[in-house]
């Protein structure tokens, strides 16, 4: 029976429409399932981290306690959060996360000093200054940069940035002979890696600023620079900031490149040419090391992972807060 023969004003559902509704409901259930999977994955990662971190701090997992085990604190939070030596697998172990937290934060801040100015300037250039033909060449180049595997960046750091770029500077200006790894090399390589993230997301935000606004300023005798600074950046600020947060989160979690560039020597130092260790680098070395699963040094992996997780979570919350605070004001 076709719908044309139906009576009434034509908004009631015929049989065809009923089948449609069914398909609709099925599609909805499938999509919901997919969304649920991502949420469940996140939750279970979080749970595994907490569960194993508990065994690091208290000697037993939550799941073990539930079946009759008991907690007995082995590593105090004071030691963990304020200790300045990190060597869980040493013969005289120490569990102060500060040196590797310093490593991660130093690399992140240093990388931000590279990626934020260069990325923002690139975005501004692409969005406001470049001609179509330059743009059509530069954008794909940046996308290629974003697609290079991080291990390749790591080798770039270890074979070029550190020995060729930084080595001679350290040698001739400061009289320091640089090793295989250095903090500065890590900062630079992570900075370069995250430039495309800053530039492409910022550029999208700038492109979304309506031309009407730009023209209003141009018609008043504004230069390109005036328009960029007073119109485009303020109007795109929340998107630009989002790109910074993403780049910073990425730098916090960056693993392969930073491990190869900055090294495995946990220490707090102001010397940019010395080897350091980030939290991720520690996790790599621990995971591929010889420590048995379940030992304290192995379980430290999860405690560090949990801290990393919380750091990126804070970045995300900051992003949300900022977005709400600085909504795009144009309409």
């Amino acid at each position: 029976m076709s719908t044309e023969t139906d009576q009434g004003p034509g908004i009631t559902s015929g049989t065809g429409a009923k089948a449609d509704q069914k398909a609709n409901r099925r599609a909805r259930r499938v999509l919901f399932g997919c969304a649920a999977i991502t949420v469940l994955t996140t939750l279970s990662i979080f749970f595994v981290l907490i569960d194993n971190a508990a065994s690091y701090f208290f000697g037993a997992r939550i799941t073990e306690v539930l079946v009759g085990g008991s907690f007995e604190q082995t590593i105090t939070f004071t030691e963990f959060f304020t200790g300045t030596r990190w060597a869980p697998d040493h013969s005289t172990p120490a569990h102060g996360i500060l040196p590797i937290a310093f490593g991660t934060i130093a690399i992140t801040v240093g990388a931000a000093f590279v990626s934020i100015p260069i990325g923002t300037a690139t975005a501004l250039y692409l969005s406001e200054y470049s001609s179509k033909s330059v743009r059509s060449k530069l954008k794909p180049t940046l996308e290629v940069l974003a697609g290079i595997p991080t291990i390749v960046y790591g080798y770039f750091a270890i074979s070029f940035i550190n020995p060729v770029m930084l080595g001679p500077i350290a040698e001739s200006l400061f009289g320091i002979s640089i090793g295989r790894y250095s903090m500065l090399s890590g900062m630079i390589v992570v900075g370069i890696m995250t430039i495309p993230m800053v530039s492409s997301i910022s550029e999208d935000a700038m492109q979304a600023v309506p031309d009407d606004l730009r023209n209003g300023a141009y018609a008043l005798g504004a230069t390109k620079f005036d328009v960029s600074l007073n119109v485009v950046i303020p109007a795109a600020v929340s998107g630009i900031f989002a790109s910074y947060i993403l780049a910073v989160s990425r730098a916090i979690g960056e693993t392969m490149a930073v491990t190869l560039a900055a090294g495995f020597n946990a220490n707090i130092t102001a010397n940019p040419f010395s080897e350091i260790m980030t939290m991720t680098a520690y996790m790599v070395s621990m995971a591929r090391g010889t420590s048995a699963v379940g030992t304290v040094e192995y379980q430290s992996l999860f405690a560090v992972g949990l801290v990393l997780f919380l750091m990126t979570l804070v970045m995300n919350l900051m992003n949300d807060w900022f977005k709400r605070r600085f909504q795009e004001e144009y309409r």
Binding site: A217, A219, L220, D226
Partner: peptide, 30 residues
């Protein structure tokens, strides 16, 4: 040239700034 020859557009396009700053903007950049 555009400082001598101003323009008003079809769609009102004030800047997302205060009324005062909208009017003052041209004066500021000039």
């Amino acid at each position: 040239l555009r400082r001598r020859i101003g323009m008003v557009f079809q769609q009102p396009n004030p800047f997302p700034k205060s009324i005062y700053d909208n009017v003052a903007y041209g004066l500021k950049i000039q």
